[in-house]
Every structure is written in C-alpha cells, then in structure tokens.
C-alpha cells in the first residue's frame, strides 16, 4: 500500500466524522482532530476502531494517547503496517 493510499483511506475515515466538509478539504497533516477538524472527542475512539478495521492493525492505549493530529494517525498506521511485514 502506497503512502497516498494510506492518506486517502485515513481522510475517508475522518470525513465520516467531520461535520463541516470544507474543513477536511483544506486539512493539512498538522490539523488537530478535535481542535481543527472539530471532531467530537467521543468520535476519536470510533476513528481508531475504523482504522483498526481498515488496515487490519491493533492500536494500543499507549498509541491512542499520542493521537492528536492527522499526521499522528498517518505515522501510527505507517509504523503498524511496517511492523506487520
């Protein structure tokens, strides 16, 4: 899976939980999920579950507590996929 595939899949998951779709269109990697994308914090756990399903990985609590930005999610997925190889 290419980096673009990973980014597109993550963006697709996030867009389910972003009310204002304009935000996802202008999002940059440093956008914070709750502060900048205005995602309800209760939905962040849903996002983690969706990512686990989409990429067939498991995200532990230590990793969960480090997720603030889109970039954090992308890096986490990349490292989990690399570890699977």
């Amino acid at each position: 899976m290419t980096a673009t595939d990973i980014n597109n899949k993550i963006t697709g998951i996030l867009s389910k939980y972003v009310f204002n779709k304009k935000l996802i269109l202008k999002a940059t990697p440093d956008f914070r999920l709750t502060k900048d994308l205005k995602i309800n914090s209760a939905r962040v756990v849903d996002i983690v579950l969706d990512i686990e399903d989409e990429f067939e990985v498991e995200i532990d609590n230590k990793s969960l507590e480090k997720i603030k930005t889109i970039s954090d999610l992308t890096s986490l997925v990349n490292s989990l996929l690399s570890a699977k190889k």
């Binding site: 709750t34 914090s41 962040v44 756990v45 609590n61 969960l64 507590e65 480090k66 997720i67 603030k68």
Partner: peptide, 8 residues
Amino acid sequence: RKPFCPIN
C-alpha cells in the same frame, strides 16, 4: 499538550 485518552 495533554491529549485525551479516556482510559487514562
């Protein structure tokens, strides 16, 4: 800088 991790 603290992120929200509910289980914590």
